[in-house]
Design a protein around this nucleic acid. Sequence first.
DNA 1: CCTCAGTGGCATTTCC
DNA 2: GGAAATGCCACTGAGG
Lengths: 93, 93, 93, 93
Amino acid sequence: MVAETNTPERDESDAVGSVARDQIKAFVARIERLEEEKANIAADIKEVYAEAKGMGFDTKVLRQVIRIRKQDRNERQEMEALLELYLGALGEI
Amino acid sequence: MVAETNTPERDESDAVGSVARDQIKAFVARIERLEEEKANIAADIKEVYAEAKGMGFDTKVLRQVIRIRKQDRNERQEMEALLELYLGALGEI
Amino acid sequence: MVAETNTPERDESDAVGSVARDQIKAFVARIERLEEEKANIAADIKEVYAEAKGMGFDTKVLRQVIRIRKQDRNERQEMEALLELYLGALGEI
Amino acid sequence: MVAETNTPERDESDAVGSVARDQIKAFVARIERLEEEKANIAADIKEVYAEAKGMGFDTKVLRQVIRIRKQDRNERQEMEALLELYLGALGEI
DNA sequence: CCTCAGTGGCATTTCC
DNA sequence: GGAAATGCCACTGAGG
C-alpha cells in the first residue's frame, strides 16, 4: 500500500503494522459499501429502462434523450464559467 | 419516443399524445433522479480515495485491491452457480 | 505480441517469425509516423495560442470558447442522431 | 476576449471593436482547423490499431512498444542535450 | 512550483 | 459471448 507515514520501519513480521492495516480495511469496507450502493442504483436504472421498453418505448431513443439533456446541463455550466472568466477579466482592465 | 402501443395514429395536433408524453417525462425524470444519486455516490467514493491518499495510501494500489476482491466475489458466485448446476443434474439421474 | 494467427509453433529460435516480425515493424512505423504528425499539429496549435496571447488576448478565455463551440457541434450531431432514431423508428410502425 | 491592447474603452455599441472581433474569429478558425486535422490523425491511428488487432496482434502490447520507444527517444535527446552542455562547458575552460 | 486542463489507457457497459 | 462504445482515472505537460 506504500503508506510512508503509516509504515515506519519495524522489526515485526507484519510489513504494514496493525494500525495501518486496520485503516486499510476500513477504507476498503467503506468503498465496497458505496460501490454496492452504486451498483444497486445502476440496477434500478436498468430496471426503469426495461420497464419503459415493456411499455413500448424505444430505450435507444430514451438513452439519447438523457444524454442530450446531460450535455445541455454541462454546456450551461461551461457558459457560466465563460461568463465568470469574462467578468473577472473585465474587472482587470 | 416511438411507442407503438402508446402512439396510435391520431388526428389531434400533438403527435405523440399527452398520455405517452407524460409517461416519457416520468421515465426521464426517474432516470435522471437515479443518475443523480449515482453521481453523488461516485463523488463520495472519490472523496474516500482522496481521504486515503491524504493519509499516505497509494490509491492506485487501493483500487487494485477493490478490483481483485470484486473479481474474487464474481468467481465465487460463478463457482456456486456451477455447483448448483451439478447438484441439480445429479438430482435428475 | 501474442498474434496467434501469426505465430504458429516453430522450431526456429525466433519466437514470432520473420513475417509477423515485419508486420509488427510496419505497424510500429505507421503509428509512429502518424504520432509525429499529430505532435506537429499540436505544436502548431500551441503556437497559435502563443501568438494570440502576444496580441493581448486571454488564452484561457480563448480555450473555453473553443471548447464550448466543440460541445455545440457535438450536441448538434447528437440531435441529428436522435432525429435519425426517431425517423427510423417511425418507419417501423 | 479581454485583449487590453485591442479593446480600448470606446463609446460605440460593440464592446470589443470590429478589428479585435475579426482577429478573434480568425484565431478561432485557425485553431479549429488544426484541431480538426489533429482529430483526423487520431482517428487514423485508431484505425491502424484496429487493423493490427484484426490481424491477431495484441494492441495493448503494441501500445506499450510505442510508448517505450518514445521514452527511449526522449532519453536519447536528454543525453545529447547533456553532452552538448558538457562540451560547451569544456570550450569555456 | 503548483495548479489544471488535455490526453492516453483502461474498465465497464452495451449492442449484436 | 465478443466486439464496439462510453466513461473514468492517472499522468503528463502547459500556464500562471
